[in-house]
Simulated scan of single mutants.
Amino acid sequence: MLKLSPQKYGRADRSALGRWFWEIDGVLLLLLAILIGIGLIAVAAASPAGADRYSSSTQTLPELYFFWRQLMWIAASIPVMILVSMLPRELLTKLCLVATGVGLIALALVPVIGSTINGAQRWIDLGFTRVQPSEFMKPVFVVALAWIFTRKMSFAARAGASALLVGAVGFLLMRQPDFGSTVIFFVTWAALFALAGARMKLVIGLGVAGLIGLVLAYFFYDVATQRIDAFLFGTGDNFQTDNAMATLTNGGMFGLGPGAGEMKFDLPEPHTDYIFSVIGEEFGLVACFAIAILYLAIVARVLVKLLDEDSPLAILAASGLVLQFGLQAFINMAVNVQIAPSKGMTLPFISYGGSSMLALSVGMGLLLAFSRRNPYLNRSPYVVRWSGT
């Protein structure tokens, strides 16, 4: 008969797994598990429409093609998230710095060897799958910024090094082009810049610079011009956003029921960019509202946990990671309800995608690692400030 030791995973257990069990934020882990479960249901609902769109005269995809592939990616991604969350912060920081360098090289190679989809060259084809380097760059970029902002250097050195990094990333992304991801990288950098103790006039200056950047994008970046014109003035091609909004509201408050949606077959990317609209049609506006609340709960949970964190690196890294996560979710939902122009951005842990699922698992593993804490340590509030600002 199998007997479990009373000390197994008890508070006296000092093994790596035992420490992880007591230090991990169980509530955050549960919220992420719920989100992944909802995402799998959503992909199952959207898969028939996606399979129909990508079937051809020579190949007909099974209705649940994307569902089974997503299940495979989830099975591969969850162990990655748990493994990353078990590693010590010091090791993760070093790995993220190395990964940031590798990511810059990969972004530079995309225009040279990358594959083009829907007019954008953002993926590297590995044969068995396509990898989007920018997705993997997002989480490690945050930790690299947090490391820079907590170095014992002058204000000018830290500001210059961080600006150089985000500038390099933005330049490489706009070569693809990927304006949406560029915005997320710059907003993340600006937020950490402010959180690290920058003076208010510098933060205001960044805000003004951001507005100027959007204006320049409107005049010199054709895709931005078309999408902003369509959003603000109703000119050009509004097919995607109009269909997304119509599909989302077609189910009313409680939806038409699983598999009963029909308008989803008219969406351009029902299983990725516009999966939030599919949820609205089949499960109702109530389900959409619940998902929005779930994202908000994840962001709030992390920020509340950081109130008594005393590590500047952990504060900046965890804040940046959860901000990036929440911002991507907000942009995707905003596009689906027509309060933002079309961006081509997935809904975290809900949209179909191998690169997205793996990269998000790395990011959330980092978030879980930087929010881990020994429950027996006394902590006091700590405000990160730059010396000499």
Rank of each mutant, 00 (worst) to 15 (best):
V140C: 07
R175C: 05
L165N: 01
S134W: 05
S181A: 12
V110K: 00
G127V: 08
F136D: 11
F193P: 11
L192H: 06
D125K: 03
I105M: 07
V142R: 01
V169G: 00
R175Y: 06
I105C: 11
E135M: 10
A190N: 07
G160D: 10
I204R: 07
G167W: 01
A196Q: 08
A161I: 14
F136G: 12
A163H: 02
F141D: 03
G127H: 11
L126G: 07
L164E: 10
T182K: 00
G160C: 12
Q176T: 03
L104P: 05
R122C: 04
G205L: 05
A190G: 11
V143D: 04
R199H: 13
G207Q: 03
A163Y: 05
R151Q: 14
R158Q: 14
A157D: 13
D178I: 00
A194Q: 10
R158L: 12
T150Y: 02
L172I: 02
K201S: 15
A146W: 00
V208Y: 00
S154M: 04
S134D: 08
S134R: 04
R122S: 11
F193D: 08
L195I: 13
P111G: 02
S181T: 13
G205P: 08
A194R: 10
V131D: 08
S134Y: 05
W147P: 08
A198D: 10
A156I: 14
W147D: 13
G205N: 03
V187Y: 11
L164H: 09
L165H: 05
L107G: 01
G180Q: 01
L145A: 00
E135I: 12
F128K: 08
F128G: 13
G170F: 00
A196L: 05
R122Y: 02
L104G: 13
M200A: 14
L173N: 02
R122V: 08
V203E: 01
V110T: 10
A196W: 05
V143L: 03
M153I: 11
A198Q: 07
L172C: 00
G114M: 06
R122M: 07
L202F: 14
G127R: 10
A106M: 15
S134I: 10
L195T: 10
G119D: 06
S115V: 15
I117H: 15
A120E: 00
Q132S: 10
W189Q: 05
L195E: 11
V169K: 00
G127Q: 10
I113W: 07
F171H: 12
D178M: 00
F193K: 09
I212D: 06
V187L: 15
I204W: 13
Q121G: 03
F136L: 14
V183D: 00
A168H: 04
A163W: 04
A209E: 01
S134E: 05
A196T: 10
A190Q: 09
R175Q: 14
L195K: 06
A161R: 14
I105W: 11
G119M: 03
A161D: 13
